Computed example of a mutant assay.
Amino acid sequence: MAQLQTIPTRPARVAALNRRYRHRAAIQVLREALSDPELGRVAMVSSFGADSVALLHMISLIDRTTPVLFIDTQMLFPETLTYQAEVAAKLGLTDVRTIRATPAAIAAADPDGDLNQTNPDACCDLRKTVPLNRALSSFDSWITGRKRFQGATRSEMEFFEEDPAGDRIKINPLAHWTARDVADYIANNRLPRHPLVSKGYPSIGCMPCTSPVKEGEDPRAGRWRGQDKTECGIHFVNGKMQRIPPAAPAPFVPADGQPVIVRDSGFGPEDWTGPILDLASDADLDDPDLRVGDATMIRIAFPSFTDGRGFTLARRLRVAGYKGRLRATGYVIADQLPMARRSGFDEVEIDADLARRQPWPHWRDAADAAPSYLKKLGRRAS
């Protein structure tokens, strides 16, 4: 009597794939996975970010017709869009598909373009997760560029894993690579680097939610800095978005002459390494020489405590669509923090003397006194 053949569950298939591929090198994993019947129709998903060119180069050597899905959140750095076009052309990739949220979805969920400030998880879902899942619906498996060294949530990642967002399998050919492996591969193959890497961005996402990383920090420390968010939502473990609570920082003691940066999380030292566009509170935004759209950080000066023009200027910039960081500096005191946050400022720069006269609890209490402002921005002082 013939026995019924049982179909392995997806966890069993993933476990079997990891056993079968466990001694393979990255390019072998990629080459065999593209034609493995167990994996079916395969696409690659690439951010065209800091390390993406290594895996894209491998794809170009094996099969340039492999579908490559590029998610354009419409909030990316201009450098990323330029780099994406240059790399695709240089490597001869013939099926790069740009994935975006539909105009109707954006109009319904993010008409003002500020959802990243009020609810970053919802913004990622709108602009990344939903469009990607729609694009992946015709594929059985997808290739990612994730690596174990990129953070604790990825430290035990294997070549293959389940995709809880769909009945698919994720393929991670570079799972066991180190940062040195990536750098050596790119250098040895003379591949172009993302232009922001040299400016302190080892991990590059959307412009409003990505900041430079200092030496010694986690490579992904610049993604959603100051928030308990480490993943955009595309990648899950056990069906849940992964979060790592930030370690409690040591109290910051400002030295004379050292600027103090006030954020929702507390006082901190200057950590911005990129260019800054300084504007007076009465700056003319219609002046074409300002080149506001090219600035990733704008600092607005307050000449006196009573001068509210800086708040108006910040709000005008946000209404006009400016997505970079906004910093208030000069004569700004704790009582003005709620107004600064409501106007669109990300942070305030004060001097060490004011920081000693108005320590962090003063600023925290001012923020707590106006919870509606912070709630609107999806943040909470601590």
Rank of each mutant, 00 (worst) to 15 (best):
I27N: 05
R41A: 15
S46T: 03
Q28F: 02
V42E: 12
S46G: 04
R31I: 00
A25I: 08
R41E: 11
L39V: 14
L56C: 12
Q28W: 00
E32G: 06
G49W: 00
L34I: 11
V45S: 09
G40W: 10
R20M: 06
E32N: 08
L39K: 14
D63A: 12
T65V: 10
E38F: 09
A50K: 02
H57F: 12
T73D: 08
S60C: 11
L55Y: 01
R20A: 13
G40H: 12
I27R: 07
D51I: 02
V53S: 03
T65K: 11
Q28T: 09
Q28D: 11
L34A: 10
A50C: 10
V29H: 03
D51R: 03
S60Q: 07
R64S: 14
L61W: 05
A16G: 00
D63H: 04
D63M: 06
I71Y: 01
V29C: 08
M44P: 13
L61G: 09
E32I: 05
F70M: 08
G49E: 02
A54N: 02
N18I: 02
I62N: 02
L30K: 01
R41W: 11
I71T: 07
S60I: 06
A16C: 02
P37H: 06
I62R: 05
D63K: 10
A43D: 15
P67M: 05
E38N: 11
L56R: 07
A25V: 11
P37Y: 07
E32C: 04
F48W: 04
A16Y: 06
D36V: 06
M58K: 02
A16P: 04
L17F: 15
E38I: 06
E32V: 06
V29N: 04
G49L: 01
V45T: 13
T65Y: 07
L39G: 11
P67C: 00
L30F: 00
L34F: 05
